[in-house]
Design a protein around this nucleic acid. Structure first.
Lengths: 199, 199, 199, 199
DNA sequence: AATGAATGAGAGTTCATTCAT
DNA sequence: TATGAATGAACTCTCATTCAT
């Protein structure tokens, strides 16, 4: 009745495992978290975790992948849209910041812990991550051609700054669940567009 | 003869130990680094480290403190100076970014690893850290009164953004030792002051 | 209709399980092999193995028993036959060596791994194993009475030697599937009968 | 006073560790033995074992190396000696059999467990092991030229047989500490030289 | 001031085993 | 008859820490 019950259950539980790992890694860091923590957080015993992951490292990789997935996907939507630069930038910031709320902690883990993955595992991540930054850079290059950003703008630097600011806000967002994301998004976009000074 | 030779030597070695710990923590993270790593990096044996630190945790605390010390001190100098806002902001950014180069890796450790300290140990750090942010906020409030920044500016957010952008650049700086700090400082300050857009 | 189908199937599958275990134990050793290895080797899942064995230990016992069964049986045939000593010895060697090929790996497992069985389980094996050696010893005693072997021969030692040489060859046989068993059998028998020296 | 005390102690303890490992592996097999068993057998705690070995595998390698060392060395002496073939063969057998007594269990471990070492680690062993068999083979080739062994003798097979018989006796020797090695050596040599039959 | 040796707690991982389905 | 899921004990290995010297 309920569909492919056999592997369906597995997929569900594995998804739960990834989320549990995301949450634990986000709060304790990769090395600070134990597999027992993860297991407990999803209500199974430590050894059982290995039914879903071959290793702790694989768990980290999955979490990072999850963190990136929607994030990259949304960027693709934004870039393929036909809106003015300012609107796009707002969308980027909004997507990034809201990521910290919804997609709970996986994105934070990607930002903070991905370096603990061995080079081999990081490759897939890098592709997606670079893709993201390149799309952002491309957006700035378009804006440059359109004359809506400063002529001397270093697009690589600009992309990095957007990401940097958003990440800095991530700390605040995760720590304070009451924070008004709408307002924060505005402020970030304003800062990026017109800076802090009076005209 | 040559001064208080016995305890002088101790102070020197202990300073070396803190630096060694800073370097190792910066590269491997607190949990990823072992006391053996630290000892080796300063040319002594694992056990000997405990002559200088009571525990690994204490080492982390010392590193964080070191990371903050000059950083805060330089901010105090900047704030007490009588220069225009733009020059001060530039000085802040410059101080922050150059910190990643000179003051070795202690600042990076403070940023990335301080959360692994238990609440009790974090108190002293918080004082200094808050002090820093408050000085920065104060700087913005002064600028607000002087009318050189936007009337609706959220000073707390502004301070956070400055720190966030600088931290984001830290990644780049640590990774690429050839990077031109002067140029980067300019770009950051420009971004913060006038944003990315044309006018 | 086609016979007692239900339990017939069971018997077949169980036989397959014993053979699978034999193969895996022979290649990886008892402790080096996992129940998952065995299950995989017969195309079922780990848990299903317990439908055929109560424990891994029981599997080892069954394998050893299998390894001995035909081996002992053939010895019985040889001993009950009315041939001259030389022919009988040849037959023994042939039976032993070909055992490594045909009766797959169960005999090798008996030789190498039986010691991991607890005393209680080893009892049945010992009976059969001793029986084998005693038949061989008896063969030598007959030959001694018949005057076809050296007068001072220690029959116990002789039996042990036959087994020892054959086992040593077992390594070669299992490792090299091309090896000519007929030739090897000749060589072993020659060695045992006339030694290595010129007359 | 007592020599290079610092590393001397270490060397001694490490030697004890190798012997302890030899003994435990010999009785329980590599996979059946735990590092806790080894540690306990030398009176230290499990973790401390890793002060002497980087891994359990390294321990196995060291044991095998130890098992081979004297064994190979004695063969070198025998081969370089200028004695008649019969005397040399006796010496080989004697050396091999007595190895099971004196050099305690390391040789047995080499024989039974070396296959559990990964290819990379086995290389050094193989050199020594092959060296041994080749020296033995060479001895037979010399005897062949001198006409003291059968003209049609397969020297490789002969060498393997010597080793095989001796190993088979090893089981007996280890199990029965009272066994008269001198007598057993004679019997083995006789068997190898003149076989079991009357003339 | 520094070290070698040891410790013990805890980590990640494997695995024989169980059991509802 | 067979499986997927889970368990818990055992195992190898790491590491912060201690201490006699």
């Amino acid at each position: 009745m309920a569909g492919d019950s056999s592997s369906e259950r597995y997929r569900q539980q594995r998804a739960r495992a990834v989320e549990a790992a995301a949450s634990v890694f986000a709060h304790k860091g990769y090395h600070g978290a134990s597999t027992a923590d993860i297991a407990e957080s999803m209500g199974i015993k430590q050894g059982s975790l290995y039914y879903y992951f071959k290793s702790k490292e694989e768990a980290l990789e999955e979490v990072c992948l999850l963190g990136l997935r929607d994030y990259v996907h949304r960027m693709e939507l934004i870039v393929s849209n036909d809106q003015p630069f300012e609107a796009r930038l707002l969308a980027v910031v909004q997507s990034h910041l809201s990521g910290y709320r919804e997609k709970n902690e996986a994105l934070k883990v990607y930002n903070d812990e991905r370096l603990y993955l061995p080079e081999s595992r990081r490759r897939r991540l890098k592709q997606q991550g670079s893709h993201y930054r390149e799309m952002l850079e491309g957006m700035f290059r378009n804006a440059l051609e359109a004359g809506v950003v400063r002529r001397n703008l270093d697009c690589h630097f600009a992309a990095q700054s957007v990401i940097g600011i958003c990440n800095a806000m991530g700390e605040l967002i995760v720590r304070d669940p009451q924070l008004d994301l709408f307002e924060l998004t505005q402020k970030c976009t304003d800062l990026l567009l017109i800076g802090l000074s009076e005209h």
